[in-house]
């Protein structure tokens, strides 16, 4: 009786420890993913956080104005840039080929436009800083001045 009780307790302890480590691993992995890139906007854009669905609607060019009616200008890196691929998958939850397919369908049927493509992160920061209503993304870097970082919820 006592013996089996102790046994159960150790097993439970082991499980708890396992779960705790698992949780830590997941949190570490998740924060690792989210700190890998972040959404940036022009400082005059009045949002501090954005949910994933809305971010997806903006980056697929379906929603083209901010809450205060200001037009959105979307900047992206080339399809084959690794930052673009990571951003699409972890921040937006879509595959890069799906973004390309959506933009192409809109452009070549006249029902929408494609985002503005920039060559690299430096240009991304520059253009987002200069363009009112602009949105883009960068890797987690502290030297991005003149742009506002937005949390993805």
């Amino acid at each position: 009786m006592v013996c089996s009780n102790t046994h159960t307790r150790t097993r439970r302890a082991r499980l708890t420890r396992f779960a705790r480590w698992g949780l830590i691993a997941i949190v570490a992995w998740q924060s690792g993913m989210s700190s890998a890139q972040q959404i940036i906007v022009n400082p005059d854009v009045g949002v501090v956080a954005i949910d994933r669905n809305r971010a997806r609607l903006i980056f697929t060019m379906r929603v083209n104005q901010w809450g205060d009616k200001q037009p959105v200008t979307v900047f992206v890196l080339p399809d084959d840039a690794s930052l673009h691929q990571v951003f699409a998958k972890s921040a937006l939850g879509v595959y890069p080929y799906q973004l390309r397919r959506t933009w192409d369908r809109q452009v070549f049927s006249g029902t929408g436009q494609a985002p503005v493509q920039v060559a690299n992160e430096q240009e991304m920061i520059e253009r987002v800083r200069q363009t009112t209503g602009a949105i883009g993304y960068i890797s987690d870097r502290p030297d991005a001045t003149g742009v506002k970082t937005v949390k993805v919820e």
Binding site: N64, Q65, P71, F108, G110, T111, Q113
Partner: peptide, 18 residues
């Protein structure tokens, strides 16, 4: 061969042709 232009005049109005 296709040539395509689009012009977003405002969030409300897009002109496009191909």
């Amino acid at each position: 061969i296709g040539l395509n232009a689009s012009w977003r005049l405002s969030p409300r109005l897009l002109l496009a042709g191909q």
